[in-house]
Nucleic acid binder design. Structure first.
Length: 427
RNA sequence: GUGAGAGUAGCUCAGUUGGUUAGAGCAUUGGAUUGUGGUUCCAAGGGUCAUGGGUUCGAAUCCCAUCUCUCACCCCA
């Protein structure tokens, strides 16, 4: 009986694994050079960790189970609750600011589709303990640092930035009741994905008043920060605008201003965001969000922790990989890990010399391989190039005199070298 | 969870109004060129035609169910 892979799960054969390692390698390297420390948590958490504080949607998508001790557990669908739990547990001994990153494997039981699977990897970076927008700028910069590192430019991607604080102040000024803000945010988040009429319809469920509704529509049609500034009256709104201006100023100073746009339509579905919010999209707007994040100053308190400001970002591997492939930025030849040396021999009697030399190279820290059965030299060279080896070492009778032939597989050039000279090759 | 489309070799696909033993290209493996690879040539392996049931003398082909995939909705990475 053939057992297929589970719905929405992926097998990583060596070529796919190379791509995954390529992406994750850059995630880690970029995190580290931006000053984030790596952490991880368990793949299983108590179900309660999610049912208590996460949104209803994410709870519906949980893979949950009961263990033999009757504990209700869930496979983690996001990393933030684990982060909050870990930070709260050691809050008194952690040096601040807490600047951590992780690349967890997450599972959500949704229906798989383009860029959306049931098991995926997500790069998370978070800064906890910094109230100033400089932390939000760091998060956005680090996100863009990675995206540029894998070859994307301002022609390929855009970061849309807004502020929940600004939006809630503006909505209250217009006359939306404070207790309606959360459901209205959820609706506004859908604005760009819904037809105008349908949007108007669901909005009227929350805001019956026609004049307030049309003011909301006017607000959402605004495209620059200056236009919002003309409308803003309240102190809170002005502070939120000043904060956004400061953020854009820092991002320009950091050299990534060309990627960033103010977009009042960025709201984000999750309820816990409190200030700056942003999402990264492909410039052609063909795909889902590549990454998203923002400020969640109340989250630790929600997990019975202290009231600490926090900001962070999550980026999944699925949409990113689709975009990188679309843009031709995944060069398998280059990414795939090949051997450095292939040790070949001109006649079967020299095979043992090849085995010895390959092992000698490995002991010296180089990667090397050889053919497991004596075949013609042409075959061995073919195998060497199939495996993507950089050099082929050809052993002939001269090996008795300590000489072998070193052949560069990309140029075809070859010359006679001594064994000592081999190790002086750039590795 | 809702809606639409699809499923033939590892991959991309042919396959006539239902008619003998289901095909190709790529990939894989082996062989040829006798000390030089990315070329060429020869050959082989690989399919319960997604699974189960039905209609029929006869089903890859028609019908039903299930599973899986794709796309959209929901939500989000």
């Amino acid at each position: 009986m053939k057992i297929p892979p589970v719905k929405g799960m992926r097998d990583f054969y060596p070529p796919e694994m190379s791509v995954r390692n390529y992406i994750m390698g850059h995630w880690k390297a970029v995190s580290q050079r931006n000053g984030f420390l790596e952490y991880d948590g368990p793949i299983l958490e108590y179900l309660q960790l999610y049912t208590l504080k996460s949104g209803q949607e994410i709870v519906e998508q949980l893979f949950s189970l009961t263990d033999r001790g009757g504990r209700e557990l869930a496979i983690r669908p996001e990393m933030t609750p684990t982060l909050a739990r870990m930070v709260c547990q050691r809050i008194n001994s952690l040096p601040r600011p807490i600047k951590w990153f992780s690349v967890p494997r997450l599972c959500r039981a949704e229906r798989p589709q383009k860029g959306r699977l049931r098991e995926f990897f997500q790069w998370n970076i978070d800064i906890i303990g910094v109230e100033d927008v400089v932390a939000d700028a760091e998060i956005i910069f680090c996100t863009l640092d990675f995206l540029q590192a894998v070859g994307l430019t301002a022609k390929d991607i855009v970061v849309r930035i807004s502020s929940r604080k600004l939006l809630s102040e503006a909505l209250i000024e217009i006359g939306v009741p404070a207790e309606r803000l959360d459901p209205v945010f959820a609706i506004l988040d859908k604005r760009s994905r819904l037809p105008q009429e349908a949007f108007e319809q669901i909005l009227s469920d929350q805001i019956p008043d026609q004049s307030i509704r049309s003011q909301v529509q006017t607000l959402m049609a605004i495209s620059t920060l200056d236009e919002v500034a003309l409308l803003a009256r309240s102190e809170g709104a002005c502070k939120a605008i000043a904060e956004l201006r400061r953020l854009f100023e820092i991002l320009h100073r950091m050299g990534v201003g060309q990627f960033c746009r103010f977009d009042i339509g960025i709201v984000r579905g999750l309820a816990y965001y409190t200030g700056i919010v942003f999402e990264v999209f492909d410039a052609d707007d063909q795909l889902r969000a590549i990454a998203g994040g923002g400020r969640y100053d109340n989250l630790l308190a929600m997990f019975d922790g202290p009231n600490l400001p926090a900001t962070g970002m999550g980026m999944g591997d699925c949409v990113l990989e689709i975009l990188l492939r679309d843009k031709g930025l995944i060069d398998l030849q280059r990414i795939q890990q090949g051997l450095e040396y292939y040790v070949a021999y001109t006649e079967p009697g020299l095979m043992d010399h090849a085995i010895g030399l390959a092992a000698w190279l490995r002991r010296a820290g180089r990667s090397a391989g050889f053919c497991y059965r004596p075949v013609a030299l042409g075959k061995q060279l073919k195998q060497a190039s199939d495996q993507g080896c950089r050099y082929c070492i050809i052993i002939d009778r001269q090996v008795e005199a300590g000489q072998v032939i070193l052949k560069d597989m990309s140029t075809g050039d070859q010359r006679s070298v001594t064994l000592d000279e081999l190790l002086r090759q750039p590795g």
